[in-house]
């Protein structure tokens, strides 16, 4: 199962302040550990929202609204993510606990979210039915 460890934005990350060397080293070491354990799939840091763009749909069915960053509600923003593949939810939590505090001044926050697998959708009987009908159609088309 896959989990995404989402590192929340902080005042510093939004201001584009480069983290102290210590934190950079600790993060690098942590990532190496993830790699050595064979659990790291991908990890990236994001630029501050000042260079971000937001597309929203305030009016259903209408054209989307495009807003340029920066965005203000910093608690809702993200600064980076690490995608891991683990054997259990507990293992994911354990890895997240081992990640260095991403900020160090009290604003550090990591959110752990499980990634949907295709099976999660297939469990839905409606999707399953659609999938089956689709396959039948394809089979009949082939015969024809």
């Amino acid at each position: 199962m896959k989990f995404m460890m989402i590192v929340k934005a902080t005042t510093d990350s939004e201001a584009g302040v480069i983290p102290p060397q210590e934190l950079i080293d600790a993060m690098q070491k942590y990532n190496e550990e993830l790699v050595k354990a064979g659990v790291l799939l991908a990890a990236d840091g994001l630029q501050p929202t000042s260079s971000g763009i937001r597309i929203s749909y305030p009016e259903p069915g209408e054209k989307p609204k495009v807003t340029d960053g920066p965005f203000t509600e910093s608690k809702e923003l993200i600064a980076g993510y690490t995608l891991i593949e683990v054997r259990s939810r507990e293992e994911a939590v354990e890895w997240a606990l081992r990640m260095p505090d991403p900020h160090g001044y009290g604003q550090g926050e990591i959110e752990l979210r499980q990634v949907y697998d295709v099976e999660d959708f297939i469990d839905n009987p409606e999707t399953l039915e659609k999938e089956v009908t689709l396959r039948k159609q394809v089979a009949e088309q082939k015969k024809a």
Binding site: A37, S88, E90, E91, V93, E94
Partner: peptide, 11 residues
């Protein structure tokens, strides 16, 4: 229990 088992497996 589950947490401890997960950690043990990792190690």
């Amino acid at each position: 229990h589950r947490t401890i088992e997960a950690i043990w497996r990792m190690e």
